[in-house]
């Protein structure tokens, strides 16, 4: 079931920061989906925006490995045991936003990407093509 790919230890040299969208495209305390180009080809990411929280932005795979459908951005955001999570809208598994690990089955992990605001822009770090 695992679709996790081990991320290389990041160094600024390995990644490029790309603009994904603008702040007003985001939905507070919820998710939206976007396309990115990665070394392995196009991918869909789910972006979550938690205004006022320690980490305000998260990006994880939009693809739900349990349901095999692109739906993670449409899940409900919450926190379990102190960690921000998203619940799959189809079969309700919880994925930690920080590292993508599934709480119900730790062998399953969504990919994660560093994201940040630059002014009004939402930027994502993608491994250099």
């Amino acid at each position: 079931m695992s679709t996790a790919t081990v991320l290389k230890t990041e160094t600024e040299a390995d990644v490029s920061w790309q603009t994904l969208c603008i702040k007003s495209d985001l939905v507070a305390f919820s998710g939206v989906a976007a396309w990115i180009e990665t070394a392995e080809g196009p991918a869909q990411v789910a972006l979550f925006y938690l205004p006022g929280h320690e980490t305000e932005l998260y990006a994880v795979d939009h693809h739900d490995p349990f349901a095999n459908a692109n739906v993670i951005a449409r899940g409900i955001v919450g926190d379990l045991k102190g960690q921000p999570v998203v619940a799959s809208p189809i079969y309700k598994q919880h994925f930690r936003l920080k590292d993508g690990v599934c709480l119900e089955d730790e062998s399953v992990q969504l990919r994660t990407w560093p994201v940040r605001f630059e002014g009004d822009q939402v930027m994502i770090a993608i491994e250099a093509l």
Binding site: F29, L50, H53, G75, I76, V77, G78, D79, L80, G82, Q83, P84, V85, A87, K92, H94
Partner: peptide, 12 residues
């Protein structure tokens, strides 16, 4: 004790 985000049980 929580981060105040709620969850997929209490929010709906």
């Amino acid at each position: 004790q929580t981060q105040g985000l709620g969850c997929d049980i209490c929010k709906p």
